[in-house]
Design a protein around this nucleic acid. Structure first.
Lengths: 206, 206
DNA sequence: CATTGTGAACGGGTTCACAGCA
DNA sequence: TGCTGTGAACCCGTTCACAATG
């Protein structure tokens, strides 16, 4: 996750802007302002204007932003103006849920392959997928030119699987296993751990 | 999510420290240093020392930190030295996966109730739970004195359900629905949206 | 007249560097 | 000697406030 010019924290807010803008179009709204968008997201209008100004001038004084235009621009910036194939590793309960989730496609992603190392699961079907053997990640992921992966394996397998994915050319990993991954600089990693989020909140509870 | 003294961003790191310390005990490690912990988490040692010093003096010069003692202290700080009951709303694929997840208990949480508004699901069993009618959140959550909830409902239902939870006394909500929630100041909200995390990463992909 | 884009001011989180101590 | 705890320095993200403009 190398930073060049733009702060990583700014990049991290763009997907939320994009998401809320999509909600607006679904309600046939055509334009919005930094103030309106900010109120919905709990972010100051100045911050939104500043963030967007890092990438160009997308608004008009007096009238605000064209929602459809801003969506297009954000999709280009975030490189989701195309659909990324995802390799999903781990066909447990969570893997099942993700494999069957219908919300990826119109936001720039598509689960393309599902892997597991359990012989009982390999060859079985999940949604539209046949579960592949984790041992074949190297060849299959590389051949399919997949650059993005999601990890829903046990902690004990996470590091090893992640390394195999990187060797196969994966450059971005979303890790659901509650453990940090040690990977080369050039690989992006994000973590999703509901318990970390819950513990963050319980701190504030009387 | 009101801040008093300690920066929210510091609080957000503590669960990660706790998680990694638990990994260390599982490998029978007894002590660690800010440097070792930092290397594992990709955080500077100075930051870890500074963060911990906000809450007290837990280490010893020359030897570092007693892992078991630091775990105890962090559990108290984060209020996970007890087990919180959680209400889970939404018995879809993701709700199923969460209801059956075995990783909550030894980190301070326990799913206690599962709700859905689909008549076909109400009364059915998920793991050890009988799915309750969302309409009864008010009474059941209040009676059980539940303060923490997880939302795995469609976007269209999220705001309404969240408000019902707050009326029933819930003070912390982990929202998996890809939409922001508008709730009173005193309620903590955290969001988990894999697509936001994925789009954050694709920005950096060539 | 409403709203953007932005330089400047501000604030606060991170890093530094070292005294202090086991 | 090794490592913590911490004031001070630094850095960087946020907010402010206003000129510019459709």
């Amino acid at each position: 996750m190398v930073k060049n010019q733009i702060p990583d924290i700014v990049v991290g807010r763009l997907p939320r802007y994009l998401q809320e803008l999509l909600h607006m179009t679904q309600k046939d709204q055509k334009t919005t302002s930094s103030q309106e968008l900010g109120e919905r997201l709990g972010i100051s209008s100045a911050q939104i204007r500043k963030d967007l100004s890092q990438f160009g001038e997308f608004g008009k004084q007096g009238t605000g932003y064209s929602i459809s235009y801003l969506i297009e621009q954000l999709q280009v910036i975030l490189k989701v103006d195309k659909v990324w194939d995802i390799a999903l590793i781990g066909a447990g309960d969570l893997g099942h849920a993700i494999a069957r989730y219908q919300g990826f496609k119109n936001r720039g992603f598509r689960v393309a392959m599902v892997f597991d190392n359990d012989p009982a699961k390999i060859g079985s079907s999940i949604g539209d997928f046949v579960v592949q053997d984790t041992a074949n990640i190297g060849t299959l992921v590389e051949q399919a030119n997949i650059k993005v992966a999601m990890l829903t394996v046990p902690v004990s397998a996470a590091q090893e699987v992640a390394e195999a994915l990187v060797r196969a050319g994966v450059r971005a990993i979303l890790n659901y296993a509650p453990t940090p991954l040690n990977l080369p600089e050039h690989v992006c990693v994000q973590y999703i751990d509901p318990i970390v989020a819950l513990q963050h909140m319980t701190y504030y509870l009387g």
